[in-house]
C-alpha cells in the first residue's frame, strides 16, 4: 500500500473513464448489459464496451465485477479485529490470518495494535470460535473485538474525472444509515 507513484489515472482513456463511472455505480441487470452501457455512453458499440471492460479487468483496475452484498442482511456477523503482534512475527501472523475465508481485508498498520482485519461468519458463535482459533494458532492474546455499533456511511465509489462533468458523475454519498 505504499505510494509508488506508478499507478496514476493518466493511462485511462476517455472510454475507460466513461465505462468506470457507470460500472462502479451499476452494471446493468439486463440481457445485454454491454449494449445498455453503450447506449448510455453514446457513439460506442456493444463490442467496444465489452472489450473495454475485459481490458480493465485484465489491467487489474477492476478487481471484481459482480454483486456487492450486504453481509449483515445476508445473515452474517462481522467485526473488525485488531491484534498486538510482536513486530518480528507480523508477516507470519498476517499471512496466517489471511488464510481464513471469513477474513476479507487484512492490513498491517503503524500502531501497537499492528494487525487489523475484518472477520465474518454465519453466526456470532462461529465468529468467536474462529477468533479463539486464530488466537490459539498465533499465540497472540492481546486482541480487540470491534463490531460495528453504528454505521454512518458505506459506499466506496471514486469519481474518476475529468472526462465526466461533475454534475453527471455519480455521487459517493449515501447519507447516514443507522444500524
Amino acid at each position: 500500500m505504499n505510494a509508488s507513484g506508478s499507478h496514476g489515472i493518466d493511462h485511462l482513456s476517455d472510454l475507460d473513464r466513461a465505462v468506470l463511472n457507470i460500472i462502479q455505480v451499476g452494471f446493468p441487470v439486463a440481457h445485454a448489459p454491454y449494449a445498455e452501457m453503450a447506449k448510455q455512453i453514446g457513439s460506442v458499440t456493444e463490442e467496444e464496451v465489452y472489450r473495454c471492460v475485459l481490458d480493465l479487468i485484465e489491467r487489474g483496475i477492476i478487481r471484481r465485477l459482480g454483486a456487492v452484498f450486504d453481509t449483515k442482511k445476508l445473515g452474517f456477523m462481522s467485526a473488525l479485529i485488531a491484534m498486538k503482534v510482536p513486530p518480528e512475527r507480523i508477516d507470519k501472523v498476517g499471512e496466517l490470518v489471511s488464510q481464513y475465508s471469513g477474513v476479507s481485508h487484512n492490513y498491517k498498520r503503524e500502531h501497537e495494535y499492528n494487525l487489523w482485519f475484518t472477520l465474518a461468519a454465519p453466526s456470532r458463535q462461529q465468529l468467536m470460535d474462529t477468533l479463539e482459533e486464530i488466537k490459539a494458532r498465533t499465540g497472540v492474546s492481546d486482541v480487540l473485538y470491534l463490531p460495528t455499533v453504528r454505521m454512518h456511511k458505506i459506499f466506496v465509489n471514486f469519481e474518476i474525472g475529468p472526462s465526466v462533468p461533475k454534475s453527471t458523475a455519480p455521487s459517493d454519498k449515501s447519507g447516514i444509515e443507522e444500524k
Partner: peptide, 28 residues
Amino acid sequence: KITEWRRKGIIRRMGAVLKHQKVGKVFN
C-alpha cells in the same frame, strides 16, 4: 431474484469493485 434482493438491500449494488491504488487513491 436480483431485483428482490436489491429492494431488500441484500444486494447493495451490481457493479465493479475497483482496485483503489490503480485509480490514483494511494494512501489508506
